[in-house]
Design a protein around this nucleic acid. Sequence first.
DNA 1: GTTGAAAGCCAGTAACT
DNA 2: AGTTACTGGCTTTCAAC
Lengths: 153, 153
Amino acid sequence: MELDNIDRKILTVLQRNNRIANVELAEEVGLSPPACHKRVKRLRDENIIVGDVSLLNPELTGNKLTLLVSVEMERDRKEIYDAFKRVINRSSEVKHCYQITGNYDFVMVVVVPDMQAFEEFVDRVLHTDANIRKFQTSVSLRTVKTTTEIPLN
Amino acid sequence: MELDNIDRKILTVLQRNNRIANVELAEEVGLSPPACHKRVKRLRDENIIVGDVSLLNPELTGNKLTLLVSVEMERDRKEIYDAFKRVINRSSEVKHCYQITGNYDFVMVVVVPDMQAFEEFVDRVLHTDANIRKFQTSVSLRTVKTTTEIPLN
DNA sequence: GTTGAAAGCCAGTAACT
DNA sequence: AGTTACTGGCTTTCAAC
């Protein structure tokens, strides 16, 4: 599926504000409301837009600690990796997880209310997995930037 | 501001789907539509909900490369850090950036269309900053997980 | 907090270019 | 692809409880 200029305009707007009225959006991108509506529908149907969500103020939620955990597995075996991925996806503490090249195999961002909750996470997810050789944790002092926006130029 | 159980229910739903009709949301959380509507309005007014956005399929946008870059600064000076943070916030390639403890000072997730774009980013943001001692890049083979949801329990 | 009602705007469809 | 025209439904607000 190809995105033309109007699609990109639509997506740029919706990535910042998806509660905009279709009539407004239509005007911003230079289309009639139904034409705009059809495009948005198509973008959703074709899974260009995969979700529509509210973002919460992280400071107001009581989740105060952000940690970065690098993980090295024992062996580069697919089943081992897949099992680990499954656990990660079930763990609500894990905000992001990337499989990477280099000294470590995974890096993840973990958000918890406090250190005790992190220790519980470590016990539950990391210490029980025999396939993890080692992991290294850094404390995040501050989230400098985090965005859901993908630039479309 | 305190969140009660109903607020948390509302936020849990809206973090997954903010296009739900107010009537439906009201039913899910066990309120009348006007009462529910007032709460959602309050949550937005009080900046508990900080944004409402569409999420795009990262695979369909032409941004194909995700890299993790760890950065070590020359000195731990606030002005140096602040200048760096400003550059990061202006760089649309940077999706996330955390200031951390440990060997490195920052870790960031950079998304670009290709390696050439990453090299341009390195030249523009990293090589021109005399306050950066070194940086280390890992290629992300796969995004195992990424979520905007904050657990509210 | 609730119900009920009213207003207006918008989403979503239809018919057509 | 695009438009205009329509309508059913929803948001949003209000009053009264």
